[in-house]
Design a protein around this nucleic acid. Structure first.
Lengths: 239, 239
DNA sequence: TGGTCACTGGTTGCATGCTACTCATGGTGA
DNA sequence: TCACCATGAGTAGCATGCAACCAGTGACCA
């Protein structure tokens, strides 16, 4: 956790720093933290820390316990499923619309972003891969021209990041995800919107299943099956 | 705007009160307010007001202007379109899943809620109709078993409420919306999930178009057409 | 031995003081 | 007449003080 610099308001800086500390694993789920301790570590007063924590609570990343401190939320499988159910509904149509609206310039940029994922993956850099993957997808969604949807999706992705870091890095599954993305790119270059939607949906679904299987494997006495079934329970009804 | 009572934390109470003041029209879009003035009106100190404003800014209903005060956001047609694009993607599959998962008890309750809409509409009580409509839809979505999605939808609905109050109350359109809901109910009782999805989609689309037409009519020099086209630009790609 | 209660260390929640910033206004000089 | 600058009123942003609150602990009593 770095001390603050200058520029944006302290509250916003602190919010970003705490979010980064959580997604990087520096602040661990289930652990207890105090606003006063965090403010000392960051070299600021309690007020901006407190405000940052309230914003993060609204995002669903931490829970403030009255007069007790704050706890990084341990995302349950139930919640992970909920988040992916939403992503599976939202992302395919948005990506398809993005494909429709993309300029040639955009398509070139997409390929650059894709290259970065491959580089990071080849270097075995898990966090960088994850970040590059996020950049890739969010850029594609952004082309749909609905910034609110893009922001929403970013937030949903942030929510599961802490679990993702632990479980995704796995060569086998990494290859599968790379194949998915290849398919998305191909469909994009053909400007085949329907195929883009399908490929994105397959990709997100696969990510969800990997995550759920991984988390349940780390948690004794928890069966993944029940949760795997729920993943596309909602999206089945996308006409 | 009422003074505070006891119970939840001040910050949360203030958040709700400000939100209510905004959706009720007591605080008007475009208008300038200061945290210090609001804190005096509410009889609390600046801190909880400031924190509440930050949360509302995150929700997107106010904008904090550094060292200047706060402004209730005048939702632009662009943003209204964005919000409805998301709702049109999200609500149909969620409602369909709700229909699938509903118990007989749930279906009875849905009919009660439907009755309340009709009562409020018959009494010509605009705000109550709007609230009853929200209860109806959110209950249906809630049956899908994804609380996060339900919360998200609630937030999206809140965002357009200030505009909705102004433009929706209109007998002709009110009747159309009522017909839509009748169709949703019928499909629900038949447990025809696909039909529920279609009916919900039609209903949300109609609401969007009414709102856009209404707002653009109140705003000279603004053509609705461009925006109407965008409404289902994304949802076209829901496979 | 088991249960209760007061105490204590640590925390948040809210109020308030101070500083730095923004914008508007009025005055000054060219 | 116009441009510019100094000034002042009003604001948010942050730090800090203080009281209320929670959880755990140890002593005391039945």
């Amino acid at each position: 956790m770095q001390p603050v610099t200058t520029g944006a308001s302290l509250t916003n800086q602190v919010t970003d720093m705490l979010r980064a500390a959580i997604t990087s694993g520096e602040m661990r789920p289930g652990e207890h933290y105090s606003a006063i301790g965090l403010s000392q570590r960051l070299g600021v007063s309690r007020t901006p820390v407190r405000e940052a924590l309230q914003l993060l609570e609204k995002e669903g990343i931490v829970r403030i316990e009255k007069n007790r401190g704050v706890r990084v939320i341990q995302m349950s499988l139930d919640e992970i499923v909920q988040i992916f159910q939403i992503r599976i509904i939202l992302e395919p149509p948005a990506a398809a619309r993005g494909a429709e609206a993309a300029t040639d310039e955009d398509l070139r940029h997409i390929q650059v972003l894709h290259g970065r994922i491959l580089d990071a993956a080849a270097a075995g850099d898990g966090p960088r891969t994850l970040q590059a993957d996020k950049d890739f997808h969010l850029f594609l969604l952004g082309l749909a021209g609905n910034p609110r949807l893009t922001d929403l999706d970013r937030e949903l992705r942030n929510l599961v990041l802490t679990r993702g870091l632990v479980t995704i890095p796995n060569t086998r599954s990494g290859q599968d995800l790379a194949d998915d993305r290849r398919e998305i790119i191909d469909a994009l270059l053909r400007r085949d919107c329907e195929a883009v939607a399908l490929a994105v949906r397959a990709h997100v679904t696969r990510t969800a299943k990997l995550l759920i299987t991984g988390v349940s494997a780390h948690t004794p006495g928890l069966s993944a099956d029940e949760y795997l079934l729920k993943i596309d329970q909602l999206s089945r009804h996308c006409q």
